[in-house]
């Protein structure tokens, strides 16, 4: 269970930062999620997909926080990541695209942002995403496509 909790913490923090745009809020949401996972550890252990179980809980924690501060923007998003990006990337064009992606991702509707983070950042399958969001797999494909097309339209110059 400890290993599972560490995995949840690592993956969950990335998701929560992208969703909430703030590392402290993300840590709070993950803490709540981990607390729920630990309280229901028997359920988690016997779950068909423990990761999907945890992300479903974490996603709800993030949605609650987004509702609480629905007016606040996500400017702080990726502050820490920016530095690492500029250190690691050597290709200027790729760096420019990564920067544009970060900015536009933070401006997306949370419904679209969560699709892109779950699929393209976390690498989940459509079935897992459907499980996390409690929606049909067909809806995952159409919603994800709308999210990507929105991002594409906003990034046209950079692509």
């Amino acid at each position: 269970m400890t290993t599972l909790m560490e995995t949840f913490q690592r993956q969950g923090f990335v998701f929560a930062v992208y969703m909430l745009g703030n590392a402290d809020d993300a840590a709070d949401a993950v803490q709540d999620g981990l607390s729920a996972a630990w309280n229901h550890r028997d359920v988690v252990r016997s779950a068909h997909d423990p990761t999907a179980w945890f992300f479903r809980v974490l996603r709800n924690k993030c949605v609650d926080r987004l509702r609480e501060r629905s007016k606040r923007r996500t400017e702080e998003l990726f502050d820490a990541a920016d530095q690492r990006a500029s250190d690691g990337e050597s290709d200027a064009a790729r760096r420019e695209l990564a920067e544009a992606l970060r900015v536009e991702l933070s401006k997306l509707d949370p419904v679209h942002r969560e699709m892109l983070v779950l699929r393209d950042v976390q690498g989940m399958s459509y079935a897992q995403i459907a499980d996390v969001l409690s929606i049909p797999a067909g809806t995952v494909m159409s919603r994800l496509h709308r999210a990507r097309m929105t991002l594409r339209d906003r990034l046209k110059g950079a692509l």
């Binding site: 400890t2 923090f13 991702l105």
Partner: peptide
């Protein structure tokens, strides 16, 4: 769309500070 996907996939993941990490794992 391929460029968007690979760009998102290769973005550096945000990492917690040691303090945030111990706060999260402190639950257990």
């Amino acid at each position: 769309l391929q460029r968007i996907q690979s760009g998102l996939g290769s973005m550096p993941h945000p990492e917690p500070t040691e303090q945030q990490r111990s706060r999260m794992m402190g639950v257990m």
